[in-house]
């Protein structure tokens, strides 16, 4: 019984090692699988994976309208206070009712870890992760960004 287990151990080890060597041998002979991007050389034709997370941006459509209701769910979801949302109250011209709306969406890129939690927390899909990654600037203050474009307003129908 002991001998059977001993031989089974060896057989299993040899088999699993051979599986690993088969995989690396496949990669060794198939150079088209190479995933290295020669970045500064291929800057114009660079293809990034779909899941790459560069920075948070707010989605604006052609009418300069976004879907952010100012609910601050992203601000609460952020683990390191990257997002600060300043809200205001819009007064409806017809009914005179006051409605909460976003004034400024402040985003501190220098604090962001690209964890994607804010995007997942957003109930209306107003923000997303962009693919840009060349973020170097000469002054840290330039990394504090306002995500909602000037003059933009919430899209009608988004609550």
């Amino acid at each position: 019984m002991f001998l059977k287990k001993y031989i089974q151990d060896i057989w299993g080890a040899v088999k699993s090692l051979a599986t690993g060597m088969k995989r690396t041998g496949y990669y060794f002979t198939h150079h088209k699988e190479i995933i290295t991007q020669q970045y500064p050389d291929n800057r114009d034709t660079l293809v990034l994976p779909e899941r790459f997370k560069g920075e948070v941006v707010m989605i604006h459509d052609e009418n300069n309208e976004h879907a952010c209701t100012g609910c601050t769910a992203c601000e609460l979801a952020c683990p390191n206070a990257t997002i600060k949302i300043i809200t205001k109250f819009d007064v409806d011209a017809e009914t005179g009712k006051k409605k909460k709306a976003i004034d400024t969406f402040v985003y501190h890129l220098e604090l962001c870890t690209m964890c994607n939690l804010c995007v997942e927390a957003c109930p209306t899909g107003a923000i997303k992760m962009a693919q840009t990654f060349e973020h170097s600037v000469f002054d840290r203050s330039q990394l504090t960004k306002t995500l909602n474009k000037p003059g933009s307003k919430i899209r009608a129908g988004v609550e």
């Binding site: 690396t24 990669y27 060794f28 190479i34 995933i35 290295t36 020669q38």
Partner: peptide, 10 residues
């Protein structure tokens, strides 16, 4: 070179 090619690098 061998290590790079086995790890899908250049």
């Amino acid at each position: 070179k061998v290590s790079a090619w086995m790890q899908i690098r250049l």
